[in-house]
């Protein structure tokens, strides 16, 4: 099973409107796929479709060896970090409590969480936050909370990690550290990652492949090519002088 996610001619309709059209991609084990596109392009929708939270209206979608209507079954093997701001910031939980909510699945209902604390410790270690286990989640800074939520999405030892703008709101060094952390996890655990980001520069250097969507998929390729190609202008519906410069810069170095 080297192909982790595969979408063929995927269409998604929400309230009678085509939110995603003709999406095609394939992510292999251990790869990091970047997803870029303007606000309202359907990036978050794409992740929710992969989780089986939204139905598809056409096409074929395979996730971790399961075909579309059966995606619910693979949810426990997927780690998900939603777009920032959906969570309750005043929750009276410790950091360890928050991470352990990531262990909950239908199978753990009506059961006590056994071996939970070891998993939580490992996940916190993976993001370099083990010293924070006993602190209260509401007392942490936004960037620290992001790391804890990453640990939460890792605690079930997922095969596939879906990250929706995990870098939003982090300062520059924290963003760099976060990206480095993802690379480390990828190498160590062979984790497959789909990452949405508006930070084109860092996503281009981190990703193995990049897709640009704006309802329709406009571009698909290796990051260096993509930032150079005319498709990007179509994704964002504007000219990209700055970025094509950067794309060229990368190629010159090689």
């Amino acid at each position: 099973m080297s192909e982790i996610v595969r979408a063929d001619n995927l269409f998604v309709r929400l309230s009678g409107k085509n939110v995603l059209k003709e999406i095609n991609f394939s992510v292999r084990e251990g790869e990091l796929m970047g997803v870029i596109g303007p606000n309202g392009a359907g990036k978050t929708t794409l992740l929710r479709v992969i989780l089986g939270l939204i139905p598809i209206s056409q096409g074929r979608l395979e996730v971790l060896g399961r075909l579309y209507p059966q995606l619910k079954k693979v949810r426990p093997m997927i780690g998900y970090m939603p777009q920032r701001s959906s969570y309750e910031k005043n929750i009276p939980l410790s950091v360890a409590n928050v991470v352990s909510t990531g262990l909950l699945t239908p199978a753990t209902m009506l059961h006590r969480l056994t071996k939970g604390s070891l998993r939580v410790k490992e996940a916190l270690q993976a993001v370099g936050m083990e010293r924070f286990a006993k602190r209260y989640f509401q007392e942490l800074s936004g960037g620290e909370q992001q790391r804890i939520l990453l640990a939460r999405s890792l605690v079930r030892k997922p095969k596939l990690l879906l990250l929706d703008e995990p870098n939003a709101g982090l300062d520059f060094p924290a963003q760099q550290k976060f990206t480095a952390l993802l690379q480390e996890l990828r190498e160590r655990d062979k984790l497959t990652i789909i990452l949405i980001s508006h930070d084109l520069i860092s996503i281009a250097s981190a990703a193995d492949q990049l897709i640009g969507i704006n309802c329709v998929m406009h571009t698909h390729g290796r990051p260096g090519d993509l930032l150079n190609c005319p498709g990007l202008d179509e994704v964002y519906r504007c000219q990209f002088d700055l970025l094509s410069g950067i794309g060229r810069g990368r190629r010159d170095r090689k």
Binding site: E88, T101, L104, P106, M109
Partner: peptide
């Protein structure tokens, strides 16, 4: 008592709870 941890997870974040497969 039966669903305390699930309810707590829903209070924290519905989207994440749902993504984990919780009802």
């Amino acid at each position: 008592v039966l669903f305390f941890k699930e309810l707590l997870a829903i209070c924290f974040d519905e989207e994440m709870a749902e993504a984990g497969g919780l009802p």
